[in-house]
Lab assay of single mutants.
Amino acid sequence: IDVRFTVNGLDVTVRVRTEEIAERVKELAKNGVDWREIQRIAEELNK
Rank of each mutant, 00 (worst) to 15 (best):
L28F: 06
E20N: 07
R17Q: 13
K47W: 13
V33R: 06
I1F: 15
I38V: 06
L10A: 10
D11F: 13
G32K: 07
V14S: 01
A29T: 04
E19L: 12
A22Q: 04
A22F: 04
E27V: 09
G9C: 06
L45A: 06
I41N: 02
N8W: 04
L28P: 00
D34F: 07
T6H: 12
G9W: 03
E43N: 10
A29E: 05
V25Y: 01
L10S: 09
E19D: 09
T18F: 03
K26C: 08
R15S: 12
L45M: 12
K47C: 11
E37D: 11
V3L: 13
F5S: 01
F5A: 02
K47T: 11
D34L: 07
W35D: 02
E43C: 08
V7A: 09
V25K: 00
K47S: 14
G9F: 04
K47D: 12
V16E: 00
R17H: 13
I21E: 03
V7G: 04
L45R: 01
E23Q: 13
E27H: 08
F5L: 15
A22E: 05
R15Q: 10
E19P: 13
N46D: 06
D34A: 11
V33L: 12
R36A: 15
E44D: 09
K30P: 01
A42N: 01
E27T: 09
R15T: 15
E20H: 09
N31C: 13
R36S: 13
R24F: 11
E44Q: 07
T18M: 02
I41P: 00
K30Y: 11
I38D: 00
K30S: 12
R24Y: 14
R17A: 15
E19G: 08
N46I: 02
V3N: 01
L45I: 03
R15E: 06
N31T: 10
T18C: 03
E23C: 05
V16F: 03
E37P: 00
I21N: 03
Q39S: 08
V7L: 10
D34T: 10
V7F: 11
E20K: 11
D34M: 07
V12T: 04
V33F: 09
V7K: 03
G9M: 04
N31W: 10
A29I: 15
W35G: 06
G9E: 05
G9N: 06
D2R: 07
V16H: 00
N31M: 15
I41W: 05
V12F: 15
R17M: 15
R24A: 13
N46A: 04
V14R: 00
N46R: 01
R15K: 11
E37W: 05
L10R: 12
N8G: 12
V33E: 06
R24P: 00
V25G: 00
E37S: 07
N8C: 07
Q39C: 14
T6M: 11
